[in-house]
Design a protein around this nucleic acid. Structure first.
Lengths: 229, 229
DNA sequence: GGCGAGGTTTAGCCGCGGCTAAAGTCCGCT
DNA sequence: AGCGGACTTTAGCCGCGGCTAAACCTCGCC
C-alpha cells in the first residue's frame, strides 16, 4: 500500500538534491560546492555532505572531498526527469485546474516526486506536449535531452540592449508577483536602460514604462536577446 | 523545498494506518486487533504495535495493550480526509485524464497523501462535488461527516434477494476486472440465486446471466437491497 | 485451576535524512 | 613558509518506520 512509483531508485529527498544540483551547475560553471548545495536546499552543510556521499555511491554524482561535486550522466537524467515532471505539473495545474501561476510551483514541488510514468504521459498529451511551462521554462522532452537556452539573465544585459522576456523564475512567488505587476512576463519586450554597478538595480523599459528592478529580481528573469519589441 | 502539505500532523505512513483502521472498524464491529492492522498494511505485527502506540500518543487512536485499538474522533476525521482525497483523485483521474478504472486506485494511493486543500477543492468543484467515486464508493463530503451505507455485502445476501450493485471494492484490480467482465458493476441489478455455505461461492444472476462468484470476490461487492431490476 | 498456543508487546537492530559539535583541509596573505 | 579563516567532513545524536527474536499476556481447554 502506498508505495511511491518505482520509476527510479531515488527517494524524494535525493531527487531534490539532483534537481538542484542540475540548476546549480547550469548557473555557475565549474564544480558545485557543498555549501552551495546546503544553502539551496536549506539544510546544514553536514547534511549536504551526507547526501552527496550517498548520491555518489549510487552513481548519480562524482564527489571529490573538499573539491566539489558534479552530476554524472545518470544523475543528470534523473534531474531532468524530475524537472520534466515539475514543469508538466505546473502547466497542467494552471491550464486544467486554474491554479494561479504564483501557486503552481509549490504544488508541483511535492507532486513532481510522485508522478507515475503513465500519468506523466497522459498529462503531457492532454497538454499537447508543450515545450514551455507557464513561466517560460523549457520542459525537458520525453527522451530527457538537455534543452539549450538561448537567453541571458536580465542582470547580465548591456545598457541599450533589447530583447523579449523568455523565462521568469518561479522559485519565489513574491518575486513572481512583483515582476508580474510590472508587466515583466514571458513574451514581453524589454530594453535595458541603465545598469547600476556593484549589484545595484537594473532600470528596464517594458510596455513604455520604466522600472528599477532590484538585482535579486533581475536574476530571476531571462531575456532572449535582440528580438525587437 | 518539497515539504508535503501541512494539512495535518500525520505522516503518509500514519495516514495509511488511520485510513485502514477506519475500514477495519467498518468491517468488523468491536475493537480492531493489532494482527488485523498488520495484515492489512502488510507489515510485521511489531511494526503495527509501534505505529499504534505513536498514533495513540498523538491522540488519533485509543490503544489498550493486548486488547485492541479504536479510532478517536480526531483519528476518524483524519481517516475521512484521506479517504475523501483518495476517492476524489480516483474520480478525477478517470474523468479528466481517462485513466482506466482498474488503475486509478494505485495512483490515488500515493497522491492522496500529497493533495493540498486548495487542489482538493478545485478538483471537487471541477467534478461538480460528486458523492461517489467510479467504483461506487461514497466520497466523504467536505465537512467529513460520516457517510451511512445502506448496502449489504454480496456474500451476506439471502437466496432470492434482489438489489442493485452499489459498490465494487477497488482494492484488488484483479478482482475488479473479474467482476467487470461478468457485468457486476455499480448500477446493475442482481439477484442472489444460490449461496453455498461454509465460504463457498455465491451464484448470482446479472443481466440475465448466472455466475458463481467466489467468496473473496463476493466480499468486494456491496448491494443496495430491494431495488428491483 | 493450570497449561499451552496464539496473539501482542518489548528489545534491539537498520537505513534515511535531518541536526550540532568537533576535527580536518585548503588557500590566501603576510 | 606558515598562519588564520573559511569551507568541508567526520562523529555522534535523533525521530521515523520498517525488521527479527524473545518475552509476555490472555484465554480456551482439559
Amino acid at each position: 500500500m502506498a508505495r511511491r512509483n518505482p520509476r527510479s531508485a531515488a527517494t524524494p529527498a535525493a531527487e531534490d538534491y539532483l534537481k538542484n544540483l542540475y540548476f546549480l551547475e547550469e548557473e555557475s560553471a565549474g564544480p558545485v560546492t557543498t555549501n552551495q548545495v546546503a544553502e539551496r536546499l536549506a539544510v546544514a552543510p553536514a547534511s549536504a555532505t551526507n547526501m552527496l556521499k550517498r548520491l555518489a555511491s549510487s552513481g548519480y554524482v562524482r564527489h571529490s572531498p573538499y573539491r566539489g561535486v558534479e552530476l554524472t550522466d545518470a544523475g543528470r537524467r534523473e534531474a531532468l526527469e524530475v524537472i520534466r515532471h515539475h514543469r508538466l505539473i505546473e502547466t497542467y495545474l494552471a491550464e486544467a485546474l486554474g491554479v494561479p501561476w504564483d501557486k503552481v510551483h509549490d504544488e508541483a514541488e511535492v507532486l513532481e516526486h510522485v508522478l507515475s510514468e503513465d500519468l506523466e504521459e497522459r498529462i503531457a498529451s492532454r497538454l499537447g506536449h508543450p515545450s514551455r511551462d507557464p513561466h517560460g521554462h523549457p520542459i525537458p522532452p520525453r527522451d530527457l535531452a538537455v534543452v539549450a537556452r538561448a537567453s541571458v539573465r536580465l542582470d547580465e544585459m548591456e545598457p541599450g540592449e533589447r530583447g523579449t522576456v523568455a523565462e521568469v523564475s518561479d522559485r519565489d512567488p513574491e518575486v513572481l508577483r512583483y515582476l508580474d505587476r510590472r508587466g515583466i512576463r514571458p513574451g514581453r519586450g524589454v530594453e535595458a536602460v541603465l545598469i547600476e554597478p556593484f549589484g545595484g538595480s537594473i532600470t528596464v523599459e517594458v510596455e513604455g514604462e520604466r522600472h528599477a528592478v532590484g538585482p535579486d529580481a533581475a536574476r530571476a528573469v531571462r531575456v532572449a536577446r535582440g528580438v525587437a519589441r
